[in-house]
Nucleic acid binder design. Structure first.
Lengths: 240, 240
DNA sequence: CGTATTATATTGGTCGGACCACATTGGTCT
DNA sequence: AGACCAATGTGGTCCGACCAATATAATACG
């Protein structure tokens, strides 16, 4: 069972993110919230701590006030994604853009580090896309694995943290779309070959271009799955 | 005055980040910590909530255990930066790489959106670097302003959040270095011209290249200032 | 002797009530 | 109407207590 203050913070977070309080407006007092949630004030207090660290409220003596969404912490993403039956399409697209770019940066750092060993390791993951016939599920896992290994190899802590944070929030929200994904393994294989070659030559620009193409294909795939899911009668809107 | 649980969480955060507890090791119990900090358990509890959301400990019935740093939240950066007299050089460099890349992504998004109005707005900030003679301080502000406007224009929420989060943690840590910065306004002006031209032509590749050059110069400047500060006898090591 | 299996102590999660300092609010006085 | 001030509300902190889950020590078993 989830803890009580987690339930409270989740509910309050949704209230705020849904815009049920205007920006700058005061939330009910901790005592009132305690009554509403049938909880002790301490529990409410811990829940508020979470909202505060999510960057969506500012709590001070005198009251807790709602902040603007673009002042929030990265962790709000998951909450923004889980609003409604399906995640917001624009947000999904924006996240994909960012993730792809981050991995691209990682690739760049990888090349600049000039570690033959690690480059070869990455190439191993790239080759998986054209050396073997991958099933739908395996293909999906391979894509994620490549990204993660790439990020690891960047040896850039902030980059890793950002990417992991985005990933952890994004992947679960995409699971309901898994059934709708139609991966063009041929094109992926093609792109992978180009990428592999670029890696072999240590050609930064080529790697960048190849990886961008690879990422773009990945993004297209997900967006297509998303659109398909959206136009398909509900059957399984929520995933709980 | 800062609140008590903030003091506690700061101190505990430093303990953990400094590696005074091994990964997986249990922290002292909340009751013990309450004694150590001469505080009530509730206050300690709120402090622990912070550590938990920083992603550096995992608290469960039975005890709170230290997690690995690369599982942390983006917000640890500021704590990592404030360790020691001067921030870690590698970390600073990594952050600069990421920030520059993020702004570059923003620029890309800006061009793809094809909003003449906003592109012109950005060009205004770019032109500031070669249309006027900027003092040291004004130049610094102009650089920051350009980045922020660029990010705004991307209309990408996750991107904005990430960049702002990094910025807010990074900028304060760099203030002690302000005196050591030596900006080559000439080269900045040169790069700005190139960038402005690329923006005018809506040439994505050119914008990317120009902006990367601009960013690289920016990064060099800061790293140089950093190295200079490090080799200079202390005078003002800490900034409190 | 080493390994399951209990019992016990410890730990976090929650509760209720209480006090303080500060912010807000509303009323009073000018 | 504006400045001032008291009453009220709010978050920050404290105390002591209970429960359920976990960890640890003691025990029984093979």
């Amino acid at each position: 069972m989830t803890t009580k203050h987690d339930q409270i913070s989740d509910e309050l977070t949704e209230d705020v993110l849904q815009g049920r309080y205007r920006v700058g407006e005061r939330l009910p007092s901790e005592r009132d919230l305690a009554v509403r949630f049938d909880a002790n004030r301490g529990a409410v207090r811990e829940a508020m701590k979470r909202l505060e660290q999510l960057g969506i409220v500012d709590v001070q003596p005198g009251g807790a006030r709602v902040k603007d969404t673009n002042q929030a912490s990265l962790d709000v993403i998951s909450h923004l994604l889980s609003q409604g039956a399906l995640p917001d399409r624009h947000l999904v697209d924006q996240i994909l853009v960012v993730i792809n770019s981050l991995v691209s940066i990682a690739a760049e750092q990888l090349l600049k580090a000039r570690s033959d060993e690690e480059i070869e390791k990455i190439r191993g993951f790239v080759r998986a896309f054209f050396e073997q016939e991958l099933g739908k599920e395996a293909h999906s896992l391979a894509r994620i694995a490549l990204m993660q290994k790439m990020l690891q190899s960047s040896h850039n802590l902030p980059l890793q943290i950002i990417a992991r944070t985005l990933f952890e929030q994004f992947v679960p929200s995409m699971e309901p779309l898994a059934n709708f994904a139609q991966v063009d393994t041929q094109r992926f294989a093609q792109n992978a070959k180009t990428l592999d070659l670029a890696l072999e030559k240590r050609d930064l620009a080529a790697v960048r271009a190849a990886f961008d193409a690879f990422s773009e294909l990945n993004r297209e795939t997900m967006v297509a799955a998303f659109d398909l899911a959206q136009s398909t009668p509900g059957q399984e809107a929520n995933s709980l």
